[in-house]
Simulated scan of single mutants.
Amino acid sequence: MSQLVNKAKNFVSDKLGDVAKPEASVMDVDFKRVTMDSAEYLAKVSVHNPYSTPVPICEVKYSFKSANREIASGTIPDPGSLKAKDTTMVDVPVKVPYSILMSLAKDIGADWDIDYQLDLGLVIDLPVIGNFTIPLSQNGEVKLPSPF
Results as ranks from 00 to 15, higher is better:
Asn68Glu: 15
Val5Phe: 14
Met27Gly: 11
Ala105Ser: 15
Leu16Ile: 03
Leu42Asn: 11
Leu82Glu: 11
Pro56Phe: 07
Ser13Ile: 01
Gly140Tyr: 02
Gly17Tyr: 07
Ser146Cys: 05
Leu144Gln: 03
Gly121Ser: 11
Leu101Arg: 07
Lys85Asn: 15
Asp115His: 12
Gly109Pro: 01
Gly74Gln: 03
Asp107His: 04
Asp86Met: 05
Lys85Val: 08
Phe64Thr: 04
Lys95Met: 14
Phe132Leu: 11
Pro93Arg: 02
Trp112Val: 09
Glu40Gly: 02
Pro50Glu: 07
Ser99Leu: 12
Asp107Arg: 07
Ser99Val: 06
Glu141Ser: 13
Val29Tyr: 01
Pro79Ser: 10
Asp111Lys: 08
Ile71Asn: 06
Ile114Met: 07
Lys15Thr: 10
Pro135His: 15
Ala105His: 15
Trp112Tyr: 10
Val123Glu: 07
Val47Trp: 01
Val123Asp: 06
Lys106Met: 12
Met1Gln: 08
Tyr116Lys: 06
Glu23Gln: 13
Ala84His: 08
Asp91Cys: 04
Gly109Asn: 09
Pro22Ile: 00
Lys85Ile: 09
Asp30Cys: 12
Thr88Ser: 10
Glu141Val: 01
Tyr41Val: 06
Asp78Asn: 14
Ser2Gln: 14
Phe132Val: 07
Leu144Gly: 03
Leu144Asn: 04
Glu59Gln: 11
Pro77Asn: 15
Lys65Arg: 10
Leu118Asn: 01
